[in-house]
Write a protein that binds this DNA or RNA. Structure first.
Length: 323
DNA sequence: TACGCGTGGCC
DNA sequence: TGGCCAAGCGT
C-alpha cells in the first residue's frame, strides 16, 4: 500500500471526506435513488460530459425510456434523438445495445457485480465500478479525471494509471463505497479544481502534499480552425435535411443541413461558432431555395424534435427558430 | 499506451 | 475572443 494511502487510512481520511459530502453534496436527480438502470444511464451520460449538460437530457431520457425494457424495445433513431446534443453518440448506441443484451441474455436483470457489468458494451473499468458501488455498495473504487487529480495532489506527484487505481482502492475504507466514490469526484468537481483549487474549503487538506498546483501538464495540440457553409432551404413548414452515411466514423446516420461549397454565393442567414473534436468551425448558414442534387429529404418542422440531429444541426435550427 | 470520438460553458 | 476542459470507452 502506498504511504499516502496508509497514512490517510489510519487518520480517518474516509470519514472526513464523507462528513463533508453529507453536508455539501449537490442534489442531483440521479442521486435520488439507487436503481441500477438510472445510475447506469447517468454514468453513461456523464462520461466526459459536464453535469449541467447532462441535467437537461437525463430527465427527458428517463421519461421516454423509464426502464431497461422500454429502452431495449426502442428504435435506435429514437434513442439517438433523445441523446441529440450530448455528443459522443457511440455512447447512446452502446447503451441501447447493452439494454437489448440485458433483456435478452440476462432476463432483464443487471449483473450484480462490477465484474459482470464490464461485459456490457460501453461499460469500462470506471463505469462498472461506479454502478456497482453506487447501486450495490460493492467495495470498488473509481478513478475518473477528478479522482486522478485529487490523488496526484495528495501524493504530491504524478501517478501512473495503475498507481492511481491502487491508491484509490486502498483509500476506500468505508461500507459506504458508493458515497465515498461520489465524494471523491464531488471534491474534485467543486473544491480540488484544476486551476484554482479551494484548499481553504477542503475537508481533507490535512492529507494533501501539494496543497494546490502540481507542475502543469504538457499543453495539448491546438484546435484547427475552419470555415464551413450550410444551406437552409425552407418550404411550406418543411426544412431540407440530409443524412450522414451509415458508415461514416463521425456521427453516422444522423441528420444535418446540406453542406455548401465554400464559394457558394447566397444570402447569409446567420453565423455561429461550433467545435467538433479538434476543429473549431466558423459556421455560415446560407439561405437556399432548392437543395442541390443528391440524397436528402424535406422534413416537417413538427418532426424535427424526434429526429437524430447532430448537435450543430440542432443549434442552427434553434437559432433559425425552426425548432 | 495513444488516439478518435461532441459539445457547451467559462474566463 | 480563443483556449481549455468534463463522472471514459473501444481499439
Amino acid at each position: 500500500m502506498s504511504q499516502i494511502a496508509n497514512t490517510a487510512k489510519a487518520s480517518g481520511f474516509a470519514s472526513s471526506l464523507l462528513a463533508w459530502y453529507d453536508q455539501h453534496a449537490r442534489k442531483l436527480p440521479w442521486r435520488e435513488d439507487r436503481d441500477p438502470y438510472r445510475v447506469w444511464v447517468s454514468e453513461m451520460m456523464l462520461q466526459q460530459t459536464r453535469v449541467a449538460a447532462v441535467l437537461e437530457h437525463y430527465r427527458r431520457f428517463l421519461n421516454k425510456f423509464p426502464t431497461v425494457s422500454k429502452l431495449a424495445a426502442a428504435r435506435e433513431s429514437s434513442v439517438l434523438a433523445a441523446w441529440s446534443g450530448l455528443g459522443y453518440y457511440r455512447r447512446a448506441r452502446m447503451l441501447h445495445a447493452a439494454a437489448k443484451l440485458v433483456v435478452k441474455e440476462y432476463q432483464g436483470k443487471f449483473p450484480r457485480a462490477s465484474e459482470g457489468l464490464r461485459h456490457l458494451p460501453g461499460i469500462g473499468r470506471y463505469t462498472a465500478a461506479a454502478i456497482a458501488s453506487i447501486a450495490y455498495d460493492e467495495p470498488v473504487a473509481v478513478v475518473d479525471g477528478n479522482v486522478e487529480r485529487v490523488l496526484e495532489r495528495m501524493s504530491g506527484k504524478r501517478l501512473t494509471g495503475e498507481q492511481t487505481w491502487n491508491t484509490a482502492n486502498n483509500l476506500l475504507d468505508s461500507p459506504r463505497s458508493g458515497d465515498f466514490n461520489q465524494a471523491m469526484m464531488e471534491l474534485g468537481a467543486t473544491i480540488c479544481l484544476p486551476r484554482q483549487p479551494q484548499c481553504l474549503l477542503c475537508p481533507v487538506s490535512g492529507f494533501c502534499a501539494a496543497r494546490g498546483e502540481l507542475q502543469a501538464e504538457a499543453a495539448r495540440p491546438r484546435q484547427k480552425k475552419r470555415k464551413i457553409f450550410f444551406g437552409l432551404a425552407r418550404r411550406n413548414g418543411h426544412v431540407f435535411l440530409v443524412q450522414r452515411g451509415k458508415t461514416e466514423s463521425l456521427m453516422p446516420g444522423m441528420w444535418e443541413l446540406p453542406q455548401l461549397p465554400s464559394r457558394a454565393r447566397a444570402k447569409r442567414l446567420l453565423s455561429l461558432r461550433h467545435s467538433i473534436t479538434v476543429t473549431d468551425y466558423q459556421v455560415n448558414v446560407m439561405e437556399i431555395a432548392t437543395p442541390q442534387k443528391g440524397s436528402g429529404r424535406w422534413m416537417s418542422r413538427s418532426r424535427l424534435a424526434s429526429l437524430p440531429l447532430t448537435g450543430l444541426a440542432r443549434k442552427i435550427l434553434q437559432r433559425a427558430e425552426l425548432l
